[in-house]
Design a protein around this nucleic acid. Sequence first.
DNA 1: GAAAAATCGTGTCATATTTCACATAGTAGG
DNA 2: CCTACTATGTGAAATATGACACGATTTTTC
Lengths: 232, 232
Amino acid sequence: MKNHTDQRIPYRTVYRLSLYARALQRLLERGAETVSSQTLALASGVKADQVRKDLTQIGHFGRPGLGYPITSLLGHLHDVLGTTRLRPVILVGAGRLGRALMAYPGFNKEGFELVAAFDCDPKQYSAHSGKNGSVPVYPIQNLSKVVARHNARLGIVAVPAESAQSVVNQLIEAGIRGILNFSPVLLQVPEGITVNNVNLALELEQLHYFTEDSAHSAKTSHAKSRKAIKHR
Amino acid sequence: MKNHTDQRIPYRTVYRLSLYARALQRLLERGAETVSSQTLALASGVKADQVRKDLTQIGHFGRPGLGYPITSLLGHLHDVLGTTRLRPVILVGAGRLGRALMAYPGFNKEGFELVAAFDCDPKQYSAHSGKNGSVPVYPIQNLSKVVARHNARLGIVAVPAESAQSVVNQLIEAGIRGILNFSPVLLQVPEGITVNNVNLALELEQLHYFTEDSAHSAKTSHAKSRKAIKHR
DNA sequence: GAAAAATCGTGTCATATTTCACATAGTAGG
DNA sequence: CCTACTATGTGAAATATGACACGATTTTTC
Ligand SMILES: NC(=O)c1ccc[n+]([C@@H]2O[C@H](COP(=O)([O-])OP(=O)(O)OC[C@H]3O[C@@H](n4cnc5c(N)ncnc54)[C@H](O)[C@@H]3O)[C@@H](O)[C@H]2O)c1
Ligand SMILES: NC(=O)c1ccc[n+]([C@@H]2O[C@H](COP(=O)([O-])OP(=O)(O)OC[C@H]3O[C@@H](n4cnc5c(N)ncnc54)[C@H](O)[C@@H]3O)[C@@H](O)[C@H]2O)c1
């Protein structure tokens, strides 16, 4: 029997908890005060049963006949997810993709702050380091220093495939623990480091397969999943 | 008992098949001719047993004592995945993210071709439609026409959240069957349409959770997964 | 304050996916 | 041709995840 004293929350569940938090935010903005598992389910694209199961895993809440108090639940979710305050994130690779990410305001809204970017190409360094709200771009040599200063744990990798492993090694060296990787390579990391890969080609290939004429199935799916890989 | 006559290949498996194809490509370039499940597993970040299971699902191959013939296996994978030739993909939203995608050469290498982009903002239209290898940007009004001309089935959505649903409706109307969605909203689609969501904030949130001090676990995972959602 | 309606919490069941284990088949060498 | 070695294919067990059902609890209404 799993209860909320277990620190183990499975991948999929964490993912859904994020969805719930997002949905709750919207509901809150619309002035709602409580929400039923049914409504929350609809708003986040899962089933009501699943919502209740997930929520009981992080500690009870709902009141039968009424639902869940939104503010309180949202607070609890943020506690569990650790998103009570802005979390610093750094980026390596200020190329086309990197710059799009740097200009993206969505991170702040979702609890993350892109505090610094790094590149090995002097042409990419930003003269005005961090002024006027834009993300400063530093030489890669400054990585450790800046990461330490911001106490960052998460890093985004947007460098060409051939540089990715080297960059990742430096990130780990600098104290980064979680890596969001856009380069299409399999990264080797030691025990204790988490890597999430975003590989658009794979997404497209899968989409393509499931939209072939032969009716396989049709689902809405969330790009997220956890193929656990052992490292040695 | 499942065999290769079943057209049903599960999500996860299709994803891994893509990984294998990629790994095989690399091995081929290095001059290898056959590969063992063990080696292929290592190269694509899964376990050897899993590789064999997956491969038997698409029809037998390997020779005991020797392994799998790379060329032949790769060909078969492309057959199954439907990536024997370049597949056309269209993009809506030529903003920061959209332009990064348009400039990305990786798609072609992976079997996809970004044939056209669309925007509602005249400032984004490209004067030189499709000349010199760059992706042409058309007014969104031309969507149906261009999609039909290229016979495109897959579309990428990179418009602001508030426009996303509307754009998706138009895409479906135009004949698009699979959608890769970058906007952070839950899209409503009818039966028969597949949506893959790429939500960076969710990725970060999950990364963050699994890198908290309390040692939960540490895995390398592939951003991919399938939360099935019922639509009515 | 009692009955009806709404909604939660959770045990149980069903399904999907992965891991294990091993018999089986093919290769290589002498 | 026979032996030793390697690597596959696959049933069965183990996990993980999601679906379902239903009793319990609280609100709402009269
Ligand atoms: N552009 C896209 O839309 C897109 C889509 C999917 C995946 N990707 C992947 O994302 C990565 C980046 O793509 P991009 O289009 O932004 O490429 P890019 O070439 O535009 O940018 C890469 C940047 O990384 C910098 N860089 C290279 N080596 C470095 C190092 N060792 N340390 C620090 N910085 C270094 C370069 O100076 C450059 O500024 C690639 O791996 C690509 O495959 C890109
Ligand atoms: N920029 C990023 O790094 C990033 C990261 C994650 C997610 N996203 C998401 O991707 C989407 C696009 O982000 P962006 O930064 O490129 O935004 P952007 O504002 O730079 O670009 C959006 C583009 O979409 C066009 N557009 C708006 N409504 C349209 C419509 N109805 N039809 C056709 N075109 C329309 C706009 O003209 C604009 O060119 C957003 O939903 C964002 O949340 C972006």
